[in-house]
Write a protein that binds this DNA or RNA. Sequence first.
DNA 1: AATAAAAATTTACGCGCGATAACTTTTATA
DNA 2: TATAAAAGTTATCGCGCGTAAATTTTTATT
Lengths: 343, 343
Amino acid sequence: MSDGKIRNMEDFAALSGISRPTISKYFNDPQSVRQSTRAKIEEAIERYDYRPNIFAMNQNRKLTKNVGIVVPYLADPFFAEIARNIEQRCIDSGYRPTLFSSHGDPELEVEILDTLRSLKPAGVLIAPLGRASRKGALERFCKDVPTVLFDSNLEGIGAAFVGSDNFSFVSQTVEYMTRTGAPPAFFEMRTPANPNANKRRSAYIEMMSRLGFDPKVIQIDGEGWAFEEIGRRGAHKVLEDGSLPTDAILCSNDRLAIGFLSACYERGLKVGRNPDCVLRVASNDDHPFSKFTCPALTTAAHDYERVAEHSVDSLFLLIENGGSLPTREETLFPARLVLRASA
Amino acid sequence: MSDGKIRNMEDFAALSGISRPTISKYFNDPQSVRQSTRAKIEEAIERYDYRPNIFAMNQNRKLTKNVGIVVPYLADPFFAEIARNIEQRCIDSGYRPTLFSSHGDPELEVEILDTLRSLKPAGVLIAPLGRASRKGALERFCKDVPTVLFDSNLEGIGAAFVGSDNFSFVSQTVEYMTRTGAPPAFFEMRTPANPNANKRRSAYIEMMSRLGFDPKVIQIDGEGWAFEEIGRRGAHKVLEDGSLPTDAILCSNDRLAIGFLSACYERGLKVGRNPDCVLRVASNDDHPFSKFTCPALTTAAHDYERVAEHSVDSLFLLIENGGSLPTREETLFPARLVLRASA
DNA sequence: AATAAAAATTTACGCGCGATAACTTTTATA
DNA sequence: TATAAAAGTTATCGCGCGTAAATTTTTATT
């Protein structure tokens, strides 16, 4: 201290002319001290560049300002985007987000939950793996830690769910394709990892019935999260054996569609809505790359911003409410149809 | 304790029949206690599911087991992939990695360094933004915290650098294109954010000279990290005004190439090595998506695994060495040429 | 100016663990 | 079996901060 080095809050308090407990209060919640005191403290922070020891803070606080963000697969730019959005909102609200990716591995997902526990987070935002998730472990975790699920819903788990309205997605793409051409067949994985996939299939079937058409579901084999490659192989297979029931294809998600379009290109099949095209392909998600496929992908877009915003707001509400909410609300946002060249 | 709940290491020590200092030693380094004691402790951990309070640990330890990983742009699957690889290696070595993305923002990069300081990390692995990075802040950070740079080198900053040998990349693609067709023109951003881009341009010019050809560099406008869109617009422009000096194009990186191919498709220009193709396009990086472009992209691939492995090994060596190394080593790994349909 | 309410201060303790010194027990090597 | 080295034990302190009670100072209201 005499050498100008501030070692702890005590030193900083002495130099700034404010008592330590008040400084502590300030860092706990800047609004809890008088405006004039706050100004003094902030000036001193600026001058001495002091920050409290984060470990000592978190050790003693009943509730830390940590927030965990867990996504199933960070190498998927869709999740990277939404994670970025959520991350920023947490920072802006004075929380300290930490980002985790399950990398498609259920065991890793559970390990992350374990790590999160030790971080004593104020709350957690998790997009679970889905079908593969260890539901028991997740459920136990949500009992102990205020948790909001996003993107993938698991019935009854977590205090709230925020995601996209799969019916809104599929109904728009189906309606559009039908109106401007022919009713589409639905292209998906046989055993999709993500629960949204099942909802999308149901929505497709429902929508086709409403419009008076026979639903045609094409299910391809494949496991894991390499959706593009699975879509590409699956497309090659159905294009090879001619089992495609129609020339209008609606893919369950953009990553499958990316693979599908890749296969079409490799086989010299022109995709699009021009007269010389033999196929039309649409999809769901508005993946960051879907603008750059060949042709560019017609797709139903997530409202990233609103999903992120409402997820974070739900979590903060949950935290302020002491970790529980009266009912488990499921909030679904509609899609926005993005017309590009592929359909 | 009497109610079965273990509140701290003291309780756990009592239940496991080992003294607390020994337990503490074990968690600091499991190898530092006798085999028989270790077995007892591990059995007790298993039985009581005890884990030490991470905040109390880090507060008092001279050196934490925290490792920071910083990438410039996590929505780029290339960085997501390499981050995943590094992350896993850290975990396997008993460290606790935390992942950060600068999201292309130099201010955020500096903020992350600030956050990292407060985490008292044993070491940090950072792929800096490059040209836009606040070099002063980075340099100061590296003086205080053992840091290894990867992917993007900043002269003299950090204790070591691990990346890819840009000459190996470009020389292979140039040589291949020249041998199998014509010497390529080099397609890049005018003011690239990443220092690798400059090295690639130099390598291109050098390689063309060696082969006895005139280097032809096409520089397109654009700022930021939306490389695909920049590449697409740039391609449209040069294809529009016919300023392309040759029909063989080597893109500085895959993301630009993705945009380039997208533009070609939109203009009905067939790309590839078949006789009916009017352009050949190759690139560098082997981006996860480059297998699914139309046509699939011929590119020089990073050795993700070796870069990740050597980065982590360098950091651990640095840590064991007390935070400094005799010389600042720069390790570059060669590329592996991946032949696909585009060139 | 009087008074109550709000805010800041002083004092004191506790959190869970790291680290050390002095001592005792176990193990290794002869 | 003797003996030194290695490992474990007991006891005690300190880290940097949260938190609470009692007290004093400042602010707001009449």
